[in-house]
């Protein structure tokens, strides 16, 4: 009798076919787990020594979580070692546009204020997607979105949003 997985046996862990990408996800999870374990061990404990009993130690849950991550990653990598290539699904230009939009909010909001940044970026995102002829739709979208946001966050919830150089 053979003990252990047969060739190509999946241990029943996945319903979907594994891909080559899963191998890299699994290996990355293992690497992240090892790096985190190294970071977590020297967590400074402001008591005289390691706490007793051991279960109270502040590094126990981070260690256990990193171990779960590593073990699951290893299992995934093992399962996907003979996987096929995953189909390409990402439109990279669109991805770059969206990430740039999100990043621009983080950078521009303290400088231009929430309302100013909202108008500029809403118009920019609509134009980038629909073309320069869509400026009436872009302006209308920005007006509605910023108006609604102002009503909900400023008028109703009283949130002091960053006001920018124009104090709006």
């Amino acid at each position: 009798m053979t003990v252990g997985p047969r060739k190509g046996h999946d241990w029943g862990m996945d319903a979907a076919r594994p891909s080559r990408l899963d191998l890299w996800i699994g290996l990355s999870a293992v690497a992240a787990s090892m790096a985190l374990m190294a970071v977590v061990i020297p967590i400074w404990v402001p008591v005289f020594s390691t706490p007793r009993p051991l279960g109270l130690a502040p590094w126990l849950l981070p260690q256990a979580s990193a171990a779960i991550l590593g073990l699951a990653g290893a299992a995934l990598a093992w399962r996907a070692r003979r996987g096929s290539d995953a189909p390409e699904r990402t439109v990279w230009r669109g991805l770059a546009l969206a990430v740039a939009g999100v990043g621009a909010y983080v950078v521009a909001m303290p400088l231009l204020g929430a309302i100013g940044t909202g108008v500029v970026l809403t118009v920019a995102l609509v134009l980038a997607r629909k073309g320069p002829r869509a400026w009436p739709a872009a302006l209308a979208t920005a007006a509605v979105a910023v108006g609604l946001a102002w009503a909900m966050f400023v008028a109703l919830a009283g949130t002091p949003l960053p006001r920018g150089p124009w104090e709006i």
Partner: peptide, 30 residues
């Protein structure tokens, strides 16, 4: 679809929950 990926997500979630000051000992974590 994948048990392993589910546990990877659980591991990340638990790790994120430990970020910050541990109120029991006052140690800074991650």
């Amino acid at each position: 679809d994948s048990l392993a990926k589910g546990f990877i997500a659980v591991g990340i979630g638990l790790l994120l929950s430990t970020v910050g000051r541990d109120l029991f000992f006052g140690s800074d974590r991650l």
